[in-house]
Simulated scan of single mutants.
Amino acid sequence: MTQQYRAYLVGENGVFRSAEAFEASSDSSALAFAKQFTRLGKVEVWQLGRKIAVLESEQSRLLEPTRPTLTRQ
């Protein structure tokens, strides 16, 4: 059984810029589908009135500083 979801593209000011309606069989499937939109910016995933998650944009993940890995010798 599938459920209705929406992926909202969130602008820098926090206002929804656009939305994509889709169906998925579970929350995890919906998140996997919505992840494709993160190349455009931050995405909020909703199932009716229930917020599932906020997915950060690919660009913000690329700009995060990498932490050095400590190795023991």
Results as ranks from 00 to 15, higher is better:
Met1Gln: 07
Met1Val: 04
Thr2Cys: 01
Thr2Gln: 13
Thr2Arg: 11
Gln3Leu: 08
Gln3Lys: 14
Gln3Asn: 11
Gln3Gly: 09
Gln4Glu: 03
Tyr5Pro: 02
Arg6Glu: 05
Arg6Thr: 00
Arg6Met: 03
Ala7Gly: 03
Ala7Lys: 00
Tyr8His: 12
Leu9Pro: 04
Val10Trp: 10
Gly11Trp: 05
Gly11Phe: 05
Gly11Asn: 08
Glu12Met: 00
Asn13Gly: 09
Asn13Lys: 15
Asn13Asp: 13
Asn13Ile: 01
Val15Gln: 15
Phe16Trp: 11
Phe16Leu: 04
Phe16Gly: 11
Phe16Tyr: 10
Arg17Thr: 07
Arg17Ala: 11
Ser18Lys: 11
Ser18Val: 04
Ser18Ile: 01
Ser18Tyr: 07
Ala19Met: 14
Ala19His: 14
Ala19Gln: 09
Glu20Asn: 09
Ala21Ile: 02
Phe22Lys: 03
Phe22Ile: 09
Phe22Gln: 06
Glu23Cys: 08
Glu23Asp: 12
Glu23Ile: 02
Ala24Tyr: 05
Ala24Gln: 02
Ala24Phe: 00
Ser25Gln: 13
Ser25Ala: 15
Ser25Pro: 08
Ser26Asn: 00
Ser26Val: 00
Ser26Ala: 07
Ser26Thr: 02
Asp27Pro: 06
Ser28Ile: 08
Ser28Gly: 08
Ser28Tyr: 10
Ser29Tyr: 10
Ser29Met: 09
Ala30Gly: 01
Ala30Val: 05
Phe33Trp: 12
Phe33Met: 04
Ala34Asp: 05
Ala34Gln: 02
Ala34Leu: 04
Ala34Arg: 08
Lys35Asp: 03
Lys35Tyr: 04
Gln36Pro: 03
Gln36Asn: 13
Phe37Lys: 09
Phe37Trp: 15
Phe37Cys: 00
Thr38Glu: 09
Arg39Glu: 12
Arg39Gln: 10
Arg39Trp: 03
Arg39Asp: 05
Arg39His: 11
Leu40Cys: 05
Leu40His: 11
Gly41Ser: 05
Gly41Cys: 04
Gly41Ile: 00
Lys42Leu: 03
Lys42Thr: 00
Val43Gly: 04
Glu44Tyr: 06
Val45Cys: 01
Gln47Asn: 02
Leu48Pro: 00
Gly49Asn: 15
Arg50Thr: 01
Lys51Trp: 06
Lys51Ala: 07
Lys51Cys: 03
Ile52Trp: 05
Ala53Glu: 08
Ala53Lys: 11
Val54Ala: 10
Val54Arg: 11
Glu56Phe: 09
Glu56Tyr: 14
Glu56Ile: 04
Glu56Pro: 10
Glu56Trp: 09
Ser57Asn: 04
Ser57Tyr: 06
Glu58Gly: 09
Glu58Lys: 15
Ser60Gln: 14
Ser60Phe: 06
Ser60Ala: 13
Arg61Pro: 03
Arg61Glu: 07
Leu62Glu: 12
Leu62Asn: 13
Leu63His: 14
Leu63Thr: 11
Leu63Met: 15
Leu63Ile: 04
Glu64Gly: 07
Thr66Ile: 13
Thr66Gln: 14
Arg67Gly: 03
Arg67Ser: 12
Pro68Met: 09
Thr69Gln: 15
Thr69Lys: 15
Leu70Lys: 12
Thr71Leu: 04
Thr71Gln: 15
Arg72Lys: 14
Arg72His: 12
Arg72Thr: 13
Arg72Gln: 13
Gln73Thr: 13
Gln73Ser: 14
